[in-house]
């Protein structure tokens, strides 16, 4: 009976700690169907875990919102390429083999 209950619990119930351990995989969409069902069943019935998941997701969204690249044009910066090539041409050492230029 005890073994049956343990197995039943393992299949159907996750603790908050176990749910926490699955957060990264859940957000990444990597949980298998059965585990995802267990995870969501727990989340639906546990306000603490639901709120924690909301904060965890909000943290990721806030990090994305604060991305320094958002303040820059997404297209390649021709000026930076030119600056970099010019910098390199000033610092290249004489070619040691069949360099083309």
């Amino acid at each position: 009976m005890a073994t049956f209950l343990t197995e039943w619990r393992r299949r159907w119930m996750l603790t908050c700690k176990e749910v926490n351990g699955f957060l990264e995989a859940y957000v990444d969409g990597r949980l298998d169907t059965a585990t995802k069902e267990q995870f969501e069943r727990h989340i639906n019935g546990c306000e603490t875990c639901r709120t924690y998941l909301q904060q965890y997701r909000a943290t990721i969204d806030l990090v994305k919102e604060a991305d320094p690249v958002n303040d820059h044009p997404p297209a390649p910066s021709d000026a930076l390429v030119d600056e970099t090539l010019s910098f390199l041409r000033d610092h290249y050492e004489p070619p040691t083999n069949n360099a083309s230029s």
């Binding site: 320094p68 690249v69 820059h72 297209a75 390649p76 910066s77 930076l80 390429v81 970099t84 090539l85 390199l88 290249y92 070619p95 040691t96 083999n97 069949n98 360099a99 083309s100 230029s101």
Partner: peptide, 22 residues
């Protein structure tokens, strides 16, 4: 040692590298 090939890589990868470093 093809410098032109290296510079082609610079042209194609500068933006991506800049974003990571930024």
């Amino acid at each position: 040692g093809d410098r032109a090939a290296f510079e082609a890589m610079v042209e194609s990868e500068t933006s991506r590298l800049f974003h990571i470093i930024l």
